[in-house]
Design a protein around this nucleic acid. Structure first.
Lengths: 239, 239
DNA sequence: CGGGCTATTGACGCCTGTCAACTACGGTGG
DNA sequence: CCACCGTAGTTGACAGGCGTCAATAGCCCG
């Protein structure tokens, strides 16, 4: 079970949102300082540990989560057990649903994860009162849609080499966006996760990493630490 | 060049939105009757003919289009000419962008198309005045995102047979959603378009259609008219 | 009836999947 | 501190699904 970290007592509420490190990157950045304490009151911090499911696609529920620390994968399962990872999510990203019905994917923690959990109904009420909130959610959902459309192109047309190259490129860009080190980069997810994300197999992913090493486009600091030697060449490989 | 059909004179404005057949399926359904005339004033009807580009990915612009008649494909081009069709759009769907910068895809008419064109700035202003509008756009964008995520699964994990089956299923469902005949169904797009949509080649698409015919899951009325004989079997093939 | 485009079908090859063996690494216990 | 073990990643051999290319068939329209 997820762990509720702090009770919503007044002290905690006063500082939780105002001191939140990911606020500049999450949808709550649209709120004014004075609204934050109130907003903290409608959310609760929840912690998840490695490989713990945050929710399943089959769950009935309307909860929205904001990642404050760690990484999350969202995925869909096919009947026969095949898995497709829809996306990797990072601090500042949100996921879940504020509508009734089943979720469109399952969500699982990669390593330790800290989240802000919102009830969909409560969030909807807030949107009614504060139009800026729905505008910001519209903005961020539109950005998500753009990312999803780019992924459609990757999975529909790119070769294994191109998929791997664009994966590394995109991780690096994402790190830069939230002001983290963008080279070298650490990969929090396993090779199997990368394969399930790129529509490949673990063997192919491994081979492509080896190829990138051999052509010295990248250098492996460790299994999960990549240093990009030649950004130009990497970008070319992305097509 | 696109053809502007009606000048925004007062008579046309009074009836254009109120008599619009796709309004129950498009984002403007959130507007009240009395707001419609005003809303008609910020849009203009534009017509496009077969294979005409509505905009290119490289265009600078912020225009949003609502389809009132016909079908549109949105697609991305790779450097070397490979094409990935991101989606087929139908009456009631919207596309384009209300933010500054380049579009995320190109849009092209499939057959004759009638649209409502909005200027992004004007639409943004309207969202400021009318929060219901941004809520509705949020709803519809969220639905788009769900469709895109399902497509990620299709392109990442499904076999050619499964892709073809789910394509036919989805078209049928889409027709039902806007209260059109859902069996038999007409396919407005070419085999090449279907291939570029499903991440396959025209040869494979053709072979899969033949397989579905041979196993009498479907029957071809003409090249572009499919009758679904066995919906259960078709659904099973989708996984 | 003929020309041109689109769709179908066949032959063949390649990219990536499958399966399995091997290697690297990290944690645990003696 | 090191031997042991389990998990994760790499690599090789082989196979198969889908792409490529080309020939044929079907269809629309003049």
């Amino acid at each position: 079970m997820p762990v509720v970290i702090k009770q919503n007592n007044s002290d905690a509420l006063a500082t939780r949102c105002t001191s939140c490190k990911v606020r500049p990157y999450s949808f709550c950045r649209c709120l004014k300082e004075k609204e934050l304490k109130n907003f903290a009151g409608i959310s609760s911090e929840k912690k998840f540990s490695d490989k713990q499911n945050i929710f399943l696609q089959s769950d009935e529920g309307k909860r929205l989560y904001n990642i404050t620390e760690g990484n999350v994968k969202i995925y869909q399962l096919l009947q026969d057990g095949r898995i497709q990872i829809i996306g990797f999510l990072y601090p500042g990203d949100f996921f879940g649903s504020y509508k009734k019905g089943k979720y469109n994917y399952s969500a699982q923690a990669i390593g330790d994860v800290m989240t802000c959990e919102f009830n969909g109904d409560t969030l909807n009420d807030h949107m009614d009162e504060n139009p800026a909130l729905s505008r910001e959610l519209l903005n961020m959902t539109t950005n998500e849609l753009i990312l999803a459309q780019d992924r459609i192109k990757v999975l529909g047309k790119l070769t294994a080499t191109e998929r791997m190259a664009s994966f590394i490129c995109n991780i690096s860009k994402q790190r830069a966006r939230i002001n983290w080190q963008d080279n070298p980069i650490s990969l929090p997810m396993s090779r199997q996760d990368i394969a399930d994300y790129l529509g490949l197999t673990i063997a192919t992913v491994s081979r492509e990493v080896t190829n990138l090493k051999t052509s010295s486009v990248i250098k492996m600091i460790s299994t999960s630490q990549i240093y990009i030697n030649d950004k130009t060449k990497l970008t070319e490989l992305c097509n």
